[in-house]
Amino acid sequence: MRVGLFVTCLVDLMRPRIGFAAIELLEAAGCEVVVPATQTCCGQPAWNSGDRASAAKLAKKVIAEFEGFAYVVAPSGSCADHIRNGYPGILADEPAWLARATALSSRVFELTDFLVNVAKLETLPGNFSGSVTYHDSCAGLRSLGIKAQPRALLAKLPQVSLKEMNAAEECCGFGGTFSVKFGDISAAIAEKKCNNAVATEADAIVGGDLGCLLNIEGKLRRMGDETTQVLHIAEVLTAK
């Protein structure tokens, strides 16, 4: 199974180890992983800012780079949702591109969804030990139905205990450019998320989208919590 890894711009810039962890997991599931070197960003910031022209330009770039693969996997529900469900709408007025976007759409997956439901990964390469609480990121949860998949994977780690937080499904306040346009509101929402997460006394807050995790980690550290780890699910599943 030949899989194209969409690394995501945040992982590229901020946390390369998540990209390598995703590769390790996909290879453990028996996939041949290819990382197209020309990839940049899925274009969601442009689309959500109301810049359709830029969003369309970047959508076409991603389609051309990834349509040759059997599957496309991203360690982010938000980016996967944008490619899967956003592109056909963005390119609705260009029939040839719409056809290509639609053809790609059903083959695009968020990492945990792919590992559980397509690749059916049985044995994890990692052996993380500790308690975790899982934050359900919005796009993954509400657009792609990512809820049971990361928990099913965590359950395969014998030394991991999952402590669910209150309101795990509520937004952390990140919202892409929202976090820098309305920083005060964004930080106030993040504070509620952090309080709910910290109340579980878990060793680590885990999620599937780096944007949310940077927001949560940034707020947590500002609140003076230097010990609670904030990790991407791929990091937990591959931790040695």
Binding site: M14, R15, D184, A187, A188, R222, V230
Partner: peptide, 12 residues
Amino acid sequence: EWTRGRDFPAPE
């Protein structure tokens, strides 16, 4: 706006 209410985590 980001860092008024929170830190920005350092990249690797």
